[in-house]
Design a protein around this nucleic acid. Structure first.
Lengths: 199, 199
DNA sequence: GTCTATATCGCGATAGAC
DNA sequence: GTCTATCGCGATATAGAC
């Protein structure tokens, strides 16, 4: 890679990092192109040499997230037999998902807002929810195939589980929340495993 | 009430109804003042004779929702002893909440988006979540006072429960969803009551 | 590739006739 | 109270020098 390209790549990285910072602070919708370029210490016009729009930038960030998610789940998913009604397995699953959301919170936030921006009639949020809980749904269907009782349709249950994580990840700002990551994961695990009635 | 005032009130109602329709279709953030006035068959300027801003209009709609919610919960809440681990009581609670969200979906959608618009660092979504699940939290604390085991801190559990309802109410567009209201309420009830491990 | 400067535009909000 | 017409701001996106 030549020096010219390296410089360009450097700027692109700087823009991405600035975007993450700004998304975390202002949210995706409230972040202006100029907020990003200013944070990155570049001129406004430079943005468009790297990304066609804010949305395209988000897609690039999403690709990075997907890579990370794939690695994480690959590292975890060595089980031959999945059983979400097993406490340890459920906790591990939720823990990995929560960790990812925390590490990539700016992108999660942005995706969430972006889905909302399409309007409630577009079904974009439902799409996000079902796509992101694809793995969960598959596990639930395995359970059902074994004749185990489920609370409801696998896709709906999976979406509900993913929904709780997403909304809490958005609502609980890391700087202000009184709850530790472990506390959150433990609580959600207990709630989703045994519900309010307990073991 | 004179004819003049009646006409004005009529326009105000028309604007509110138009706003609800537009919020349901486009979402709150995407809805422009002109979308509302056009839908109501009025001129742009007329809007400001009734509301100072889109946000003020939302506040007015919220007041209507609060009235309805108060009535609903008053009609239901005759129990001397609350027990969220009791299937019937939990289902009733969730059913009432779900029904309200469905009947006032445009306002729910708008409140949700409005909270997001303040940015993730503002904590506005967490505020919404805790305020709206105030009653739930109180019931959970009763349970805890009786020495019953809870999945976690009452406020967090309540927020998680409210969060599932909110996000599903937003994501499941009434026109497109394959799930009936009963199916959703049954599923959430089962999930929150006994979790994935079953009874 | 990066900068400065600017064209362009949508939209919120107001002024003033009726 | 309601209308039409318009002002002005803020933000995206582009043009052109370096």
């Amino acid at each position: 890679m030549g020096v010219r390209k390296a410089k360009a790549a450097e700027t692109e990285v700087a823009l991405k990092e600035a975007a993450r910072r700004q998304f975390a602070r202002r949210g995706y919708l409230n972040t202006k192109i100029t907020d990003i370029t200013a944070d990155a210490g570049r001129a406004t016009g430079s943005f468009y040499d790297h990304f066609a729009s804010k949305d395209e930038l988000l897609k690039a960030l999403l690709a990075d997230l997907h890579d990370a998610a794939h690695d994480q789940f690959a590292a975890e998913g060595g089980h031959g037999h999945h059983d979400l009604a097993d406490r340890d397995q459920l906790r591990t699953h939720l823990g990995v998902a929560w960790g990812l959301m925390r590490d990539h919170r700016p992108v999660m936030v942005a995706l969430f807002e972006s889905a909302l921006a399409d309007g409630p009639a577009s079904g974009a949020l439902w799409e996000r929810l079902t796509e992101d809980t694809e793995v969960l749904r598959a596990h639930l269907e395995e359970m059902r195939a074994e004749g185990r009782a489920l609370p409801g349709p696998p896709a709906l249950v999976a979406a509900a589980m993913g929904g709780v994580l997403s909304i809490l990840a958005y609502a609980l700002t890391p700087e202000a929340t009184p709850y530790s990551d472990d506390e959150v994961v433990d609580t959600i695990t207990a709630l989703l495993l045994n519900g309010l009635a307990g073991a």
